[in-house]
Lab assay of single mutants.
Amino acid sequence: MATKAVCVLKGDGPVQGIINFEQKESNGPVKVWGSIKGLTEGLHGFHVHEFGDNTAGCTSAGPHFNPLSRKHGGPKDEERHVGDLGNVTADKDGVADVSIEDSVISLSGDHCIIGRTLVVHEKADDLGKGGNEESTKTGNAGSRLACGVIGIAQ
């Protein structure tokens, strides 16, 4: 089992970053940390998408990683996509320092995120509470600013 993974985020604009993942036990939580720069100040949706395909930019990554066919939600919700990591918060300089621990994603097994795409979005994720159909699919997080395929790390 891989215990570490990394993702280099890039987009068409100024947004870029490096996100690290570490899972010490196969059924334990995954620590997610790193930094994203070039964002507007505020909240930005942060999700693992189904495919590791960036051939047409971030759009070819498909929908959120959702092997259990659930509705979109927040990272602490029972009803959520596996890939729903909530929001990252950018400061006035456009930098989001990421520090998350998640017990639904994994670096092995059915919820493995390796080979899938991590995406940072234009807007805040409403965590499935926006009151419309799009909220239950995407959290109304808007366009995909930057993305990268999650790969095994040393």
Score class of each variant (00 low, 15 high):
Ala2Cys: 07
Ala2Glu: 15
Lys4Asn: 15
Ala5Leu: 00
Ala5Lys: 02
Val6Asn: 15
Val6Thr: 12
Val6Phe: 09
Val6Gln: 15
Cys7Ala: 09
Cys7Tyr: 01
Cys7Pro: 00
Leu9Arg: 01
Leu9Lys: 02
Leu9Ser: 04
Lys10Thr: 14
Gly11Gln: 04
Gly11Arg: 04
Asp12Pro: 15
Asp12His: 09
Asp12Trp: 05
Asp12Val: 09
Gly13Lys: 11
Gly13Tyr: 03
Pro14Arg: 11
Gln16Ile: 07
Gln16Thr: 15
Gly17Tyr: 02
Ile18Thr: 12
Ile19Gln: 01
Ile19Lys: 03
Asn20Arg: 09
Phe21Arg: 01
Phe21Asn: 04
Phe21Thr: 01
Glu22Ala: 09
Glu22Ser: 08
Glu22Gln: 07
Gln23Ala: 05
Lys24Pro: 07
Lys24Thr: 09
Lys24Leu: 14
Glu25Ala: 10
Glu25Lys: 15
Ser26Asn: 07
Asn27Cys: 10
Asn27Ser: 13
Asn27Leu: 14
Asn27Ala: 14
Asn27Thr: 04
Gly28Arg: 04
Pro29Trp: 00
Val30Ile: 02
Val30Arg: 02
Lys31Leu: 14
Lys31Gln: 04
Val32Trp: 03
Val32Ser: 03
Val32Thr: 02
Trp33Arg: 09
Trp33Ser: 12
Trp33Ala: 11
Gly34Tyr: 01
Leu39Val: 04
Leu39Trp: 03
Thr40Asp: 08
Thr40Ser: 11
Glu41Leu: 03
Glu41Ile: 08
Glu41Asn: 04
Glu41Ser: 09
Leu43Cys: 07
His44Leu: 01
His44Ser: 01
Gly45Thr: 03
Gly45Glu: 08
Phe46Thr: 02
Phe46Glu: 02
Phe46Ala: 03
Phe46Ser: 01
His47Cys: 01
Glu50Asp: 08
Phe51Leu: 10
Gly52Tyr: 15
Gly52Asp: 05
Gly52Val: 05
Asn54Leu: 13
Thr55Met: 10
Ala56Ser: 14
Ala56Asp: 07
Ala56Thr: 13
Gly57Glu: 05
Thr59Val: 03
Ser60Gly: 13
Ser60Tyr: 11
Ala61Ser: 14
Gly62Trp: 13
Pro63Arg: 07
Phe65Thr: 08
Asn66Met: 03
Leu68Ile: 10
Ser69Glu: 15
Lys71Met: 08
Gly73Val: 11
Gly73Lys: 03
Gly73Tyr: 15
Gly74Thr: 00
Pro75Glu: 06
Pro75Phe: 11
Lys76Trp: 14
Asp77Cys: 07
Asp77Pro: 08
Glu78Asn: 14
Glu79Arg: 08
Glu79Ser: 15
Arg80Asn: 04
Arg80His: 05
Arg80Asp: 05
Gly83Lys: 15
Thr89Glu: 10
Thr89Pro: 07
Thr89Ser: 14
Ala90Leu: 01
Ala90Cys: 14
Ala90Ile: 00
Lys92Cys: 09
Lys92Met: 10
Asp93Pro: 01
Gly94Tyr: 02
Gly94Ile: 00
Gly94Phe: 00
Gly94Arg: 01
Ala96Asn: 02
Val98Asp: 00
Val98Asn: 02
Ser99His: 08
Ile100Cys: 10
Ile100Lys: 07
Glu101Leu: 11
Glu101Pro: 02
Glu101Ser: 12
Val104Pro: 00
Val104Leu: 11
Ile105Val: 08
Leu107Arg: 00
Leu107Ala: 01
Leu107Val: 01
Ser108Tyr: 13
Ser108Thr: 12
Ser108Lys: 11
Gly109Phe: 00
Asp110Ser: 13
Asp110Glu: 15
His111Phe: 06
His111Trp: 06
Cys112His: 12
Cys112Ala: 09
Ile113Ser: 01
Ile114Tyr: 02
Ile114Met: 06
Gly115His: 02
Gly115Ile: 01
Arg116Tyr: 04
Arg116Thr: 00
Thr117Met: 13
Thr117Ser: 14
Thr117Ala: 09
Thr117Gly: 06
Leu118Arg: 02
Val119Phe: 03
His121Phe: 13
Glu122Phe: 04
Glu122Asp: 10
Lys123Arg: 14
Lys123Thr: 08
Lys123Ser: 11
Asp125Lys: 06
Asp126Tyr: 06
Asp126Phe: 09
Leu127Ser: 10
Leu127Met: 11
Leu127Trp: 15
Lys129Met: 09
Lys129Arg: 11
Lys129Ile: 12
Gly131Leu: 14
Glu134Leu: 04
Ser135Cys: 07
Ser135Ile: 08
Ser135Lys: 05
Thr136Gln: 10
Thr136Ala: 09
Thr136Phe: 15
Thr136Lys: 11
Lys137Arg: 15
Gly139Glu: 06
Gly139Ala: 09
Gly139Asn: 15
Asn140Thr: 11
Ala141Pro: 13
Ser143His: 13
Ser143Met: 08
Arg144Glu: 08
Leu145Met: 10
Ala146Thr: 01
Cys147Ala: 09
Cys147Tyr: 10
Gly148Pro: 03
Val149Gly: 03
Ile150Phe: 02
Ile150Ser: 03
Gly151Ala: 12
Gly151Val: 12
Ile152Gly: 08
Ala153Gly: 13
Ala153Pro: 07
Ala153Arg: 12
Ala153Ser: 14
Ala153Asn: 12
